[in-house]
Design a protein around this nucleic acid. Structure first.
Length: 959
RNA sequence: GCGCAUGUGGCGUAAUUGGUAGCCGCGCUAGACUUAGGAUCUAGUGGAGUGAUCCGUGGGGGUUCGAGUCCCUCCAAGCGCACCA
């Protein structure tokens, strides 16, 4: 009997499907026999391109871990679903007229087929699809909870908007500063006297999901707005289209109110430092102060700036305001009017993208001066685009000796620089230190900057010319899209007031449309539907991240028609214990889903406020591209050759490095391709690298016949070899179809089987690490599985496994492996675990060990990695269901050495007359000096180190 | 520019976290069984040297009895952020 993986894998996949073997149930109330464990993958967007070998990496890791936890006696939730709303499906619909629901369903079908072949243990009964009514009903419902809530800064949590209304009626808004407008103040009487419209407008400024006008990232090509994290370098993340700022009516999530809790929550979760860093940077909390500078000649009027360095107040040489600053008109003096107007026109002409791409120093003097509040020195006020209107107060105090940008600006416009840093400033580079001693700073002279910060802050507050202020870089998240393929907002507009739909009216079903083109005035396709607009329904839809912000909760209770997830279910499953996915969602999805979880927690719907306890970031699998070198010979601009000629890499390199002359190259080509047309010395030759399908290349050696099948042009092409081989060039790039470097998992599964594929993906290296795909080593893993098979069956002899009792040596191999695999699994070191399996099987093979007692335990260790072959062998040993098998317990006595005596050498040489000084840590070792030798005696049953110290010198123990 | 992580044989990687560097696999070399093998098995495989030995973890320096691991510095390629005052 040989290892027929195709038959075996098909058989077990069918059987498990039929049995519903991976079905996970929520425990009956009061019955919680098993502890729970929740392993989650970031669910995929079902794109039309299908899976490549990079996608399943994280899924395989999570699958192994889930199966492992199951053998450890946990009730494991390991679901999968689809993030099915989104732009690409709609773009496809625009181009091909296929309804997004149809193309999405097709893509999901493909994904599912591919995933099934790899043998995952997902409980498909719990599958979610964010574009299904039964799912998005609850996305809409949660949106309404946000809409009906505000963030109570007094209690630091979300509360019902009714609480706010009650407070307004009793005492106005004195206890609830308006997050959208600090200056808004009203009394209870004023509130009661307002029209409904005015009251609703005010409430909108408090709601956690709210509608307002604001500068948004408008992408004309996509016809919609984008969230900040969907814009990269001034162009859209999807498609790379230009993005401009535009004022539009938009829905937002008031995520800024949660900035602090999103920050502090990071301390309670196990994310990588890099991930925490990215989120922290995105939130961008900074501590500083707002300071008012009186405008010279305009008593009572002042310019307010934001600074994190009030200690540098005497180093302020000029002020800079953003071109959009509201005081531009007030500050512009008549003699500067035309210059300022010209500058503002210039700034407006520059797109966001230009501003990002070339950061040139530009600006204009307003003619106005403000007064330094501490010494009344006049300070000139400038306008420049390097100050952003949207951050702080849109105005800064510039301290050129301490800030590089300020210094560049000062130098460019010849503004004199005051040095408050003494020797710490060299006149060439700004120094942003906080540790220098202040100079030229009046009452601060001689004080270290770090300490001066507080002194200045206190003076400022004492004199009432400013106050401490915390700022965040993060903005409220744009939450509407002018597109079709998303969740409709459950909102009706009547007389300019947004009314939420009743829960009984949900789901608000996305209607069918005839065309996906944009509606009037920047509105989405829904604005073209008469039956929709006549009901005054909101025409925007929700962005892609809406459905993915809470899907981990739906998995817990996927079929609940009455709630998004029952409290009993979310209390049982709790946090996601292990979340696996890529880093690309660091600031988008991860931040939004943390926000939604916190709101649901505040409102009492769930009992935990951080969704993910532990996050594991899988590395990206890059493509390893291969190139062939095309010979282009032209005469007077026209191609000389009818055939396409490709030369091997060595020839191309040598020619390009001028080690090979024109005529030598032609001679080489001619020797292999006699039909080469005559070449003139005056012809020009170019050798161009061209991507070739990696699947036609073995390492770097091209399989010429396989290559001919990959592209039409290659059928009659001529390949010029070196040493009888065609060698390709290689380069690591992103995996993509256009670079012909994608490797399809289906092909590998057909050739080697799912078990081999799974183990090989893990064997490649640590899951967290990015690496280029290389299929070369897969045979080694496949050989391992065949070797394992031969421990049970021999091609000639048939069954070779026996019932005999194992020897101590065999038990030692087994128990060491049990411990090693457990350690490796627990720390997600799946690559070293695969190595350990290979060592184990090699050793058992060497010992000719075919004993059932050993082999059965080994199968249980291995089943998370290679579920099919282990199930088959387990059944052949006469055992019941391997999915129910428990992880074996290792016996310490086989793992560690038992009491034994070892001769000892010091640094490789045997020493005499040694005084032994044992560390406390090595107290499980006993050492005896015997003449020329030191004998080390290990006490039984404890793990040990092989090293002890003798009078400060190391002893190497030779075992 | 700032931040984060990384650098080990021909290649992917490992090293029990400061203790004999190179486990496991690929590739390569030699051999066995074969009509044949891209099947399987055996032996070898960091470099130099017949050898004992010596040299080796991107470069340089430091801490330590001892450094791939810790510290400083430089170099290289990678990811993230990018006028946030």
């Amino acid at each position: 009997m040989e290892y027929n993986f195709r038959e075996i894998e098909q058989k077990w996949q069918d059987q498990w499907k039929q049995q519903g073997a991976y079905k996970v149930s929520n425990p009956e109330p009061g019955k919680t026999a098993k502890p729970k464990y929740y392993v989650l993958d970031m669910f995929p967007y079902p794109s039309g391109a299908g899976l490549h070998v990079g996608h399943p990496l994280g899924y395989i890791a999570s699958d192994i871990f889930s199966r492992y936890k199951r053998t450890k006696g946990f009730n494991v939730l390991h679901p999968m679903g689809y993030d099915a709303f989104g732009l690409p499906a709609e773009q496809y619909a625009l181009e091909h007229g296929v309804h997004p629901a149809v193309s999405t369903a097709n893509n999901i079908g493909n994904f599912r087929k591919q995933l099934d072949k790899i043998g995952f243990c997902f409980d498909w009964d719990r599958q979610v699809n964010t574009s299904e009514e039964g799912y998005y009903k609850w996305t809409q419902w949660i949106f309404l909870q946000l809409f009906k809530s505000f963030y109570n800064r007094k209690t630091a949590k979300a509360e019902s908007i009714d609480v706010l209304v009650a407070a307004f009626e009793k005492e106005g808004n004195m206890n609830h500063i308006c997050p959208a407008d600090n200056a808004l103040k009203f009394t209870a009487d004023q509130w009661r006297g307002m029209s409904e419209q005015d009251q609703q407008d005010i409430l909108m400024n408090y709601r956690l999901s709210f509608c307002g006008y604001g500068e948004v990232n408008w992408c004309e090509a996509l016809g919609t707005v984008l969230a900040n994290d969907e814009v990269v370098n001034g162009v859209s993340e999807r498609g790379g289209f230009p993005v401009v700022k535009k004022k539009l009516r938009q829905w937002y999530l008031r995520i800024t109110e949660y900035a602090d809790r999103l920050l502090s929550g990071l301390e309670t979760v196990e994310f990588s430092d890099a991930m925490k860093e990215m989120q922290t940077n995105w939130i961008g909390k900074s501590y500083g102060a707002e300071i008012d500078f009186e405008i010279q000649g305009l008593a009572g009027q002042s310019l307010r700036v934001y600074t994190t360095r009030p200690d540098t107040i005497f180093g302020v040489d000029f002020m800079v305001i953003a071109p959009e600053h509201e005081l531009v008109d007030v500050l512009t003096m008549p003699e500067q009017l035309s210059a300022v107007q010209e500058y503002i026109t210039y700034v407006k002409s520059r797109s966001e993208r230009e501003r990002m791409a070339e950061k040139r120093i530009s600006g204009c003097f307003t003619g106005a001066y403000v007064l330094n509040p501490f010494n009344n020195q006049p300070i000139p006020v400038w306008i420049s685009e390097y100050v952003l209107a949207g951050y702080g107060t849109g105005a800064i105090m510039a301290v050129p000796c301490g800030d590089e940008r300020d210094l560049r600006f000062a130098k460019h416009f010849d503004i004199p620089v005051t040095n408050i840093l003494g020797e710490a400033y060299n006149g060439v580079e700004a120094n942003a230190t906080k540790d220098a001693v202040l100079h030229n700073s009046y009452f601060l002279d001689g004080i270290v900057m770090r300490d001066a910060i507080n002194i200045v802050l206190e003076k400022i507050e004492e004199r009432g010319i400013g106050q401490r202020k915390v700022n965040y870089r993060m903005r409220d998240a744009a939450f509407s899209r002018q597109r079709y393929w998303g969740e409709p907002f459950p909102i009706k507009w009547i007389n300019g007031i947004a009314y939420p739909l009743e829960e009984s009216e949900l789901p608000l079903i996305l209607p069918k449309v005839d065309s996906y083109s944009a509606g009037p005035e920047g509105e989405g396709p829904l604005a073209n539907i008469e039956s929709w607009t006549s009901q005054h329904l909101e025409t925007n839809t929700m962005p892609g991240y809406a459905g993915s912000s809470w899907y981990f909760l739906r998995y817990m209770d996927p079929h609940n028609a009455a709630e998004f997830c029952s409290k009993a279910a979310s209390d049982y499953w709790g946090q996601v214990d292990l979340y696996i996915g890529g880093t690309e969602h660091a600031v988008g999805h991860l931040l939004y889903s943390r926000l939604w979880t916190k709101v649901l927690f505040d409102l009492g719907y769930i009992s935990h406020e951080e969704p993910y306890k532990r996050l594991l970031n899988q590395g990206m699998i890059q493509g390893s591209s291969r190139f062939v070198y095309r010979l282009n010979i032209t005469r007077d601009g026209a191609a000389v050759l009818n055939n396409e000629i490709y030369v091997s890499k060595g020839l191309a390199d040598r020619y390009n490095a001028e080690e090979l002359s024109f005529s030598e190259l032609i001679a080489e080509v001619k020797s292999q391709f006699a039909a080469l047309p005559a070449i003139d010395a005056g012809d020009t030759i170019a050798i161009n690298p061209i991507h070739i399908d990696v699947n036609a290349v073995d390492g770097v050696e091209l399989d010429v016949e396989a290559a001919r099948k990959t592209r039409h042009n290659y059928v009659n092409a001529v390949f010029i070899l070196e040493n009888g081989k065609y060698i390709c060039g290689a380069e690591v790039e992103k995996m993509s179809k256009s670079k012909f470097n994608t490797v399809n998992p289906d092909d590998l599964v057909v050739k080697f089987g799912a078990d081999t594929f799974r183990m090989y993906e893990m064997f490649l290296g640590p899951v967290e690490m990015s690496k280029p795909w290389d299929t070369k080593g897969i045979e080694g893993v496949h050989r391992f599985l065949k070797k394992l098979w031969r421990l049970f069956f021999d091609e000639l002899k048939g069954k070779v496994w026996v019932e005999e009792a194992p020897t101590a040596a065999e038990l030692k191999i087994l128990h060491r492996t049990i411990r090693k695999i457990e350690d490796d699994n627990e720390r997600f070191s799946f690559n070293t675990a695969v190595s350990a399996f290979m060592v184990c099987v090699n050793e058992l093979t060497d010992l000719k060990c075919h004993k059932k007692a050993i082999l059965a335990d080994l199968l249980v260790l291995l089943t998370p990695y290679a579920p099919h072959i282990t199930a088959e062998l387990w059944a052949l040993l006469g055992n019941e269901n391997i999915l129910e098998a428990a992880y074996p317990v290792f016996d310490v006595k086989y793992v560690t050495e038992s009491a034994k005596e070892y001769p000892v050498s010091i640094n490789g040489k045997v020493r005499t007359n040694i005084n032994i000084a044992l560390d406390a840590a090595q107290a499980d070792v006993e050492a005896i000096v015997l003449g020329n030798e030191v004998v080390i005696k290990w006490l039984e049953g404890k793990p040990h180190k092989k090293i002890i110290y003798v009078k400060g010198k190391m002893i190497n123990v030779v075992v």
